[in-house]
């Protein structure tokens, strides 16, 4: 645990965090008002989002400036690695809550409703076969099959993991052309994935009668794939920023944690998708 002789970089006072807090205040109150159908809601929410964007631009500009200016030594780099790892771990636990809900509904609560007293008196004739929208659901729906769009999407995301690794190797070998090409390919595959996810949702709502309100199956399907899609969107935006930085000549073969952090995030989103494909679409 020996530290290099140089100082650990401690930033100057910054006004960006308070912008962030203001943004969160506006967005939270805006969302609450909107959900309760009060007119000011969407305005507050958008204003908050705008402040949040300003904060993100300003804060990251700060960080990028410090990084390119050489303020971040080896030890700061190690801090970033720990920080990003634990952040991804927190995201894993967030998804775990929703996978846990899927497990519980599918394995415990739906069978329970069809058995015993509740099956005999409350919900006669309710069968526990998964996929299920629960005993109170009126109407028909079809589940999302695994081997259409979802299988194609799996291939897209796995390929994007490969192209990203290609870009990373190119960065280490200082081959800037392949770096940029690999990143651009990754971004393209990411947005293609998102486009197909939207197509899938349109298909679900339009033809399968599968909606967010379609009981336990619909709730878990849309919340899990929806949060995943949201994370892919964030990851793709982050990759775009990294590509822009690469085009400006940022990152060196031995100093590029900004790139690596985003790559870790992308691979994390990839792994979540594999779990989704197996547990939500396939089995």
């Amino acid at each position: 645990m020996s530290q290099p002789a140089s100082h650990y970089f401690v930033p100057q006072p910054s006004h960006w965090p308070i912008f962030g807090s203001g943004a969160l205040l506006l967005m939270a109150t805006g969302a609450v008002l909107w959900m309760n159908k009060l007119a000011a809601g969407p305005y507050l929410l958008s204003a908050g989002f705008f402040v949040l964007l300003t904060m993100l631009f300003g804060w990251f500009a700060n960080v990028i400036g410090e990084s390119e200016g050489g303020s971040y030594g080896k030890n700061v780099d190690v801090s970033f690695r720990w920080g990003m790892s634990w952040f991804i771990f927190s995201e894993v636990m967030f998804f775990a809550a929703f996978f846990g809900a899927l497990f519980y509904i599918r394995v415990l609560s739906v069978p329970d409703l069809a058995e015993g007293l509740s099956g005999e008196f409350l919900y006669q004739g309710f069968s526990a076969a998964w996929p299920s929208a629960g005993p109170g659901f009126k109407g028909e729906f079809s589940p999302m099959g695994a081997w259409g769009l979802p299988a194609i999407n799996t291939a897209l995301l796995l390929t994007s993991g490969v192209t990203l690794t290609w870009a990373h190797h190119a960065l280490i070998k200082n081959n800037r052309l392949h770096l940029n090409l690999g990143l651009a390919a990754t971004i393209l595959l990411g947005f293609l994935f998102l486009f197909l996810q939207v197509e899938e949702y349109v298909h679900a709502y339009g033809e399968l009668n599968l909606k967010l309100t379609t009981g336990g199956y619909g709730s878990t399907f849309f919340m899990l794939t929806g949060f995943h899609g949201f994370h892919v969107t964030l990851g793709a935006v982050m990759l775009c920023v990294i590509l822009a930085r690469c085009l400006k000549g940022h990152f060196k073969p031995d100093h590029h944690f900004g790139f690596e952090g985003v790559a870790w995030y992308w691979h994390f989103v990839d792994v979540v998708w594999l779990l989704l494909f197996v547990l939500v679409y396939w089995l």
Partner: peptide
């Protein structure tokens, strides 16, 4: 959604 509602499973 019906995470906590028996009617939806």
């Amino acid at each position: 959604t019906t995470f906590f509602n028996a009617a939806g499973g």
